[in-house]
Amino acid sequence: MLSRVAQRLYWMSRYLERVENTARLMGVYTNLLLDMPSGVNIGWYNLVTLNDAEEWFESRYKVKDERNVMRFLLADPDYAGSMLSSLQRVRENIRTTRDVVPAESWEYINELTLFVQDNLTMGVNRGQRHAFIASVIKSCQQFLGLFVGGMSEGQGRAFLRIGRNIERADMTTRILDAGIKVVLENNGNVLPATEAIIWVNVLRSLSGYLPYTKQQRKTVRGTRVARYLLEDTALPRTLRYCCAAVRHACVVLPRNDAVLAHVDRLLASHYAPLDDEDAVLNQEFSDYLNHLQLQIAELHQLCEETWFTFE
């Protein structure tokens, strides 16, 4: 496979995953905020900080309200992480890899881009937001089905899988961090019941609530959730699962030593304080998550050097 094509498949997969994650986050926040007792200090703006996009946002909007945050995340043409920008990148990458992806991909991405473009107000207004989000997630899942069911195993599939899982791993650490930030921002003034709601929603945003309850059979608590989302090997969005998936995909690729070594380090990562279930998730843990994000970025860089940028 051409290095350039591999690189575009990788990014296509990352951006597609980003689209789905943005939709999921919007959904979870909408639910969460409706559940929060008044007086709890949590805002829509967290969705912006979560994506490290404060500077972008503030250069364009004065009011940090729901409407502006939604507009920004959905449709801002200059913010590379907005759903519409991501979709355009997915589209451009499919357009330039049409000879290796299933023929339907092009039709699917055109449909999805048109849907999002034509229905932005559905996403901005609360009344129809649920239907909008459900539709976007469904389309993203449809893509995954198409790739799994319609694409030969091989290098192309490997790069799609690597891209998807690196993006997911990154997002999981960010969502966890967002949960912690809400707790920290309220300086320990959050009631245990409210804190549970936050963690339930963190789990939900990663499709992890039901698997968690089945597997843990314990009440939802910050440390348990954090450990679960970082180290569980069965749930497809945990850090460990994503790294294992990247590892699995790398095995079929040539010259994979450096990448594998780095993935193995990530797979072995463990934050010792989480061994104590009564530990308090503090700024230090947030820093640890930040460290993980840097490690994931490093993994991306290694893939880039190994397979994409050719000497």
Binding site: M1, L2, R4, V5, D99, V100, A103, P254
Partner: peptide, 29 residues
Amino acid sequence: AQQMGAELVEGSDLVVGEDDCVYMKTVDG
């Protein structure tokens, strides 16, 4: 390219070696 199962390449994907043969840059080399 898709219909023929051929690689779609841009100029920067190709290189001519010292043996005067044309090569494309792939994940495998």
